[in-house]
Computed example of a mutant assay.
Amino acid sequence: MSFNSRSSSNRRSEYRLFISHSWEYSDEYNRMVELLRDYPNFSFRNYSVPKVDEIDADTEEELEQALREDQIKPATVVIILGGMYVAHSKWIKKETILAEIESKPILGVTPRGNEQMPNFVEDHADQIVGWQGKSVVEGIRDLAD
């Protein structure tokens, strides 16, 4: 028996995820969380902050620091939802750069029904997958394990 090969029994019991999103487009974020929750034999902790739990920060610097320390740093994988709004969201770009600074693998997810990804996501993602539960979960496992 080889101890070098990874089997499903060697996988993490829980994945720590940060799902980057824009509160203006929170439907995609909510659908992604639901997709992951519904996936069989997959457990995760979500370090993202939904709009209802906004971070208490008075300045952009405080917000950036809280994002880095409390959400991105503890995550195993950062997921960037590749809707075209990414091109217009400075915070999604900042979160992506923070993930790179913290050496976190980045999984880009192509929006449901789209084949195009924003160039920014293509340039920064370690892996890009389609919007299907199996693809997303396998991408997370590939990058985290």
Rank of each mutant, 00 (worst) to 15 (best):
L36R: 03
G82N: 01
G133Y: 02
G113S: 12
V33K: 06
A66R: 08
R16V: 01
E138T: 11
R6V: 15
S20E: 09
P105Q: 04
E64W: 03
L81D: 02
I19T: 08
M1K: 11
G139E: 03
L81Y: 02
I72T: 07
K93E: 06
A125C: 01
M1E: 14
E54N: 13
S48H: 02
F18E: 04
K94I: 11
D142T: 11
L63T: 08
V137C: 10
V136C: 09
I80C: 12
S103C: 07
W91S: 08
A99W: 02
V77W: 03
A144C: 10
S135V: 05
A75I: 10
I106D: 05
L81G: 00
S13E: 13
N10P: 01
G130M: 05
L67N: 06
V121S: 03
E138L: 05
K51E: 15
R16Y: 04
G83S: 14
I80E: 03
Q116N: 06
P74V: 11
N114R: 15
E54M: 14
R141C: 09
K93T: 00
I128M: 08
E54K: 14
E60W: 03
E69H: 14
Q116F: 06
R31T: 09
E138Y: 04
W131T: 01
P50Y: 07
S43V: 12
H88R: 11
